[in-house]
């Protein structure tokens, strides 16, 4: 059961990572990257690293996404 959950999370990680790379809309890519961070956070927590999970949740899913959104707002939304 535990291993199944891990494998599921890893598969979702790969899927979201590929989606970030393939998405041409940078705004959508930033949001997908945020969900990637969420998966990563769950994986850290599940593998017994709550310290890293907290950092990932606060920095990865929270602040970097905001900074990405601000940067996109200052530049262009589409990847050329």
């Amino acid at each position: 059961m535990s291993l199944t959950f891990d494998i599921l999370l890893l598969l979702l990680l790969i899927v979201t990572a590929l989606a970030v790379a393939w998405t041409k809309d940078l705004l959508a890519a930033a949001i997908i990257f945020s969900s990637y961070s969420l998966m990563m956070c769950l994986l850290w927590q599940h593998r017994g690293a709550p310290d890293v999970a907290m950092t990932e949740a606060a920095v990865g899913a929270g602040i970097t996404t905001v900074l990405f959104l601000v940067a996109i707002g200052r530049t262009t939304r589409r990847e050329k």
Binding site: P50, D51, A53, M54, T55, A58, V59, G62, I63, V66
Partner: peptide, 24 residues
């Protein structure tokens, strides 16, 4: 989170990120 970092998961980096997010 910052002050309890040496007992429970967390610490300066985590608490600082939460504080920074609140600031934003």
């Amino acid at each position: 989170v910052i002050l309890n970092g040496h007992v429970t998961p967390g610490g300066g980096f985590q608490g600082g990120a939460i504080l920074g997010g609140m600031f934003i």
